[in-house]
Design a binder for these strands. Structure first.
Lengths: 234, 234
DNA sequence: AATTTCCATTTGGTCGGACCAAAGTTGGTA
DNA sequence: TACCAACTTTGGTCCGACCAAATGGAAATT
């Protein structure tokens, strides 16, 4: 009943610590034992302790800022997306990488608005209307408009109830931020975007999935055109 | 003109090596320099060299098998999905984790078949029909049926032309394999699954996105019911 | 007493050297 | 030529040490 001695020594440490984090023995946000403590606890060298922490970090189970104690993070889809960031970063540097990612967003979000049109409940509708009003009120404040724009879109990722989608939305926003952040913010564009949001909202209120999907796709494609105008073909 | 001395020393090495891999200076499949060579090349200790390789590995830029030279991998969406595996593994261990993942698959694949029904070209149709025939022929060979089943579904992920989707399909198959692999394989179930595939195919031939989506969803929900029957509520 | 300042301790980051075992290479022998 | 043993390379692990940033608490200030 002893542990297998197979593979790297750090694997055992990783397994044990991962289990502790998942089970909450090491609470979310609590710091991990210091490297020198792990040495005595597991009878390993500091090299292995550090390697184990590094592995946990790459799995998103701990957050390791330089010069700081690594803190435990319950495995959530958010953490997964964070840990995936550096990987995706490489892909975005490739030709067409940004478009490929944005294209997936179009498909996913189209499907989400379609789903919303079919089965959004009163609560969802209310949230959408609130977000839409905030969006309208921010037309002349481009920074605020950006925030409310994001918020409006985020709601679609929340409606399904599947916790993966909010994490995906956060990932999209984070990964595509370098492009969006540098785009010129004009009240005219804000007005057009708000109109697009309103069109999507209308279609959802009419319970018309096809119209909602069409409006969403048109909206996102317009946004993409803006990106291309700003950055050229990427 | 000097490099920033900020952050960990390994970061600089990671940046340089990542660049070399992206640019093809280190060809896809070629081994990285040995750790002791990296020491002299970058003027670092072996500790840092190993840390850099570890970081590259977690970013999917190199494949590091124990006791073997790490080999370079051009950043692709496949590599990204591979590197994400250990992260997702944690999520699947959580209550409802598998369902959350499978639920996203339903939404994505529904959207893909919908898209296929709208704009699949002759070549796509032919590929689907070929896969469907192979699937039919394998009804009495459960292992082969599993293969052809996967192949049929994969085509939907290929039609869009966006290289992200095939990688996503591979990821779904890999991550959900522990569940699927242990399910009982019965010719009766194969026959039902083939019928479902045929129904999707029909809807696509009729250019009926709604019917295609409905058929796909029904098919996947049935598959999920099987999973639940096999594993109980997970 | 509450707050700020400062210093000793803790802790992560890096280094160099060392040993082992597995993988890869080489050369000699059958 | 084919095969096996010795040698070399290389990744995995451990040790001890030093540095600098972060931390926490004592000491000084208000």
């Amino acid at each position: 009943m002893e542990e297998k001695i197979t593979g790297r020594a750090a694997d055992r440490v990783v397994r044990v610590l991962a289990q502790k984090i998942r089970d909450g023995v090491i609470a979310h946000g609590a710091p991990l034992p210091a490297e020198r403590d792990l040495m005595v606890e597991f009878g390993i060298s500091r090299t292995v302790a550090r390697e184990a922490i590094s592995a946990l970090s790459s799995q998103g189970l701990v957050e390791a800022k330089p010069r700081h104690r690594p803190v435990a993070r319950k495995p959530g889809f958010d953490a997964a997306m964070d840990a995936t960031g550096s990987i995706v970063g490489n892909l975005l540097l490739q030709p067409g990488g940004v478009w490929n990612l944005f294209d997936t967003r179009i498909l996913v979000e189209a499907s989400l608005v379609r789903s919303a049109a079919e089965k959004a409940n009163k609560h969802d509708i209310a949230a959408l209307e609130t977000a839409l009003l905030a969006n309208k009120a921010a037309i002349h404040d481009s920074d605020l408009f950006y925030q409310t724009d994001m918020q409006f879109h985020r709601i679609f990722y929340n409606i399904s109830g599947n916790p993966v989608w909010p994490a995906v939305h956060r990932a999209y926003v984070t990964w595509l931020a370098p492009q969006w952040g540098q785009m010129p913010r004009l009240p005219e564009r804000n007005k057009a975007n708000f109109a697009a949001h309103a069109a999507i909202m209308d279609a959802i209120l009419m319970r018309d999935p096809d119209a909602a999907e069409a409006a969403l796709k048109s909206h996102l494609m317009q946004a993409w055109d803006q990106v291309r105008l700003t950055f050229g073909d990427i």
